[in-house]
Design a protein around this nucleic acid. Structure first.
Length: 576
RNA sequence: GGUCCUGUGGUGCAGUUUGGAGUGCACGCCGCCCUGUCAAGGCGGAGGUCGCGAGUUCAAAUCUCGUCAGGACCGCCA
């Protein structure tokens, strides 16, 4: 049926009779005896000269047979890859007619996303989705290749698994054979990959679909793909090497450049200097510690646990009063009391409502510590340390964040704490999952009811960040059942609870578990960022909307009563 | 659960602040003309419950309330 692809024809094909198949991209008619038909397939577009009567319309599916001719001088189209040639003496065979597409096929204007998703099969023909989905495939293949190179074996893990109460909300599947009982869809293959390590598979990987029933965002869908990996007899350093290699291969496949070595930063530095555990290191504007400067100050605003500030270069003029008010409102929404600001004027004189409460030394010290120069704007937060970091971190992004497609800044964040806080029952809240190995120097703090000292425990957990997005995370796992028991105990699980939820894992660890460590990163997020897309829906063939529905298939849909009965289910009227 | 933004022929927008006849622009679509165009060109035409529902008003795309859909974000996502 087809001898060649449209986009691959060149002047070297001159004289060949070829058959190409595809969709009518555009037609330019010059009376009954001459028409130019641009025929499009997934490789590109080629101009076909049709000089007989025909009835071709946009998006008709056709096969065109003709002879390749180098275009006459002056008729070339420099904007088209095949612009040097055309098909002559064309015979047109209409394989299928088509209605006019519901939106323009060219990418020069944005189209409402609901309409694109409703007609995704048409949208997919357009350049953007063709490019994105093909690059996504390149990412996956590069990642697979990199893992295979490093001795990893692909193993599939089940989709229908037991529900675990930890972590995100599970998607649940009713059991027909055991009415009233349910499977859960995996939030990640975490437990299975650890079992593979006990099973002597040595190095496992999988591009796994994971499902979490939590609200959707630009970087979150119900279901997403991750490169999931685990290796035996290795620690953090090796895992970071494995994953860096896979990520670099993917970056090379898409961007054509192998990234420089990926820098590392401790979790505590990320929090203190960037106010977040996923810093966007493409720009500076770091959080500067000012607490010592205001020790013993008379200014009430700064009589707090922590004072930090950021410097906006040239912000004194660029950031107007209205904008400052706007930023202040944002800070309040984020939980702050307000926003302290100072403009640095001529001779480094500070201008701002709070200067009258500050001594000359404090003002001079502020300028010095902030590294400020004339024309800068200084923004300060004071209060509880967690809040100061958080608010300033958000403010920093609000003011300085570059467009998502500008540059690539990978960053490994290491030395996460084991527990992120103590809840109202006095139990610690795990920062990562409860199979994470504590830092060897900190194991002694790991006691039930340890209170605040538990927060000092570092874990051997690490994240990979790209342009301020969390790409993925991993850890060295606990392989010693005794340590695992004390972590469960510290978390406030009773022996029975631990046995009930994870007994099979603890059992497995008794039969010779090797030391092991692993990682997982999101394929959707990586692909989106590599392609400069700010939304993972753009790299997913059939994504859901923010409210979790699919405009194409209308999922989710009700199921009929007979089906419900078979599953032993009954629906309740919607809650008030 | 919450905050904010958007909804106007098939598509993208303007019109809404300050109420006065479905008004306009670009693309697309349909018909006719056109033998070298390539985002072809020329002439003509069709196409609308201004998301939906209530309210205010002599009068609502425009103001108010509610609701639905989409999006960004907060919460949530071990």
């Amino acid at each position: 049926m087809r001898t060649d692809y449209c986009g691959e024809l060149t002047p070297e094909d001159e004289g060949r009779e070829v058959s190409v198949c595809g969709w009518v991209d555009r037609r330019r008619e010059h009376g009954e005896k001459l028409a130019f038909i641009d025929l499009r397939d997934h490789t590109g577009v080629v101009q076909c000269v049709v000089d007989e009567k025909h009835d071709l319309r946009s998006e008709y599916v056709v096969r065109i047979t003709g002879t390749i001719v180098v275009r006459p001088e002056g008729m070339e189209n420099a904007f088209l890859d095949t612009g040097g040639i055309e098909l002559r003496d064309c015979e047109v065979e209409i394989l299928n007619r088509a209605e006019a597409p519901p939106f323009p096929m060219h990418s020069r204007q944005d189209v409402d996303e609901t309409v694109r998703l409703r007609y995704r099969y048409v949208d997919m023909r357009r350049e953007r989705m063709q490019r994105n989905l093909r690059y996504r495939a390149l990412v996956q293949s590069a990642v697979r290749g990199a893992m295979e190179d490093q001795g990893f074996t692909e193993i599939e893990t089940p989709l229908l698994i037991a529900s675990t109460p930890e972590g995100a909300r599970d998607f649940v599947v009713p059991s027909r054979q055991k009415p009233g009982e349910f499977y859960a869809l995996p939030q990640s293959p975490q437990i299975f990959k650890q079992l593979c390590m006990v099973g002597g598979m040595d190095r496992y990987y999988q591009i796994a679909k994971c499902l979490r029933d939590e609200d959707l965002r630009a970087d979150r869908q119900f279901e997403f793909a991750q490169l999931d990996a685990e290796a035996s007899f290795v620690g953090q350093e090796e895992v970071i090497e494995f994953i860096s290699y896979a990520i670099s291969s993917a970056t090379d496949a898409v961007r054509g450049v192998w990234p420089e070595e990926m820098p590392m930063m401790s979790w505590i530095d990320a929090m203190e200097y960037y106010g977040t555990d996923k810093p966007d290191t493409r720009f500076d504007m770091t959080l500067i510690e000012l607490t010592p400067l205001f020790e013993g100050t008379e200014a009430n605003v700064f009589k707090t646990e922590c004072v930090k500030g950021i410097t906006v270069d040239g912000g004194a003029d660029e950031v107007g009063r209205n904008r400052i008010d706007e930023l202040t409102e944002m800070c309040k929404r984020w939980g702050a009391k307000g926003l302290a600001w100072f403009r640095v004027g001529e001779d480094l004189v500070l201008d701002g409502g709070l200067t009258k409460f500050m001594t000359d030394d404090e003002q001079a010290g502020l300028i010095h510590m902030m590294g400020a120069k004339q024309g800068d704007l200084l923004l300060l937060q004071s209060g509880d340390r967690h809040l100061v970091r958080d608010v300033l971190g958000r403010l920093r992004l609000e003011i300085g964040k570059p467009p998502i497609d500008e540059g690539l800044a990978f960053l490994w964040v290491v030395d996460f704490p084991m527990f992120e806080s103590i809840n109202d029952n006095g139990d610690p809240v795990a920062a990562h999952h409860p199979f994470t190995m504590p830092h060897p120097d900190d194991v002694d703090y790991l006691v039930r009811g340890g209170g605040e000292s538990l927060l000092k425990i570092r874990s051997q957990a690490y994240d990979l960040v790209l342009n301020g997005w969390e790409l993925g995370s991993g850890s060295v796992r606990i392989h010693d059942p005794e340590i695992q028991k004390s972590v469960f105990a510290a978390l406030g699980f009773s022996e029975e609870e631990a046995e009930d939820k994870f007994g099979f894992l603890l059992d497995a660890f008794r039969y010779g578990a090797p030391p092991h460590a692993g990682f997982a990163f999101g394929i959707d997020r990586l692909t989106a960022l590599l392609l400069g897309e700010e939304n993972i829906r753009e790299v997913i063939a059939f994504p859901k909307t923010q409210s979790g529905s699919d405009p194409l298939t209308n999922a989710p849909t009700p199921i009929d009563d007979r089906h419900l009965t078979e599953l032993g289910l009954r629906t309740l009227p919607p809650a008030e």
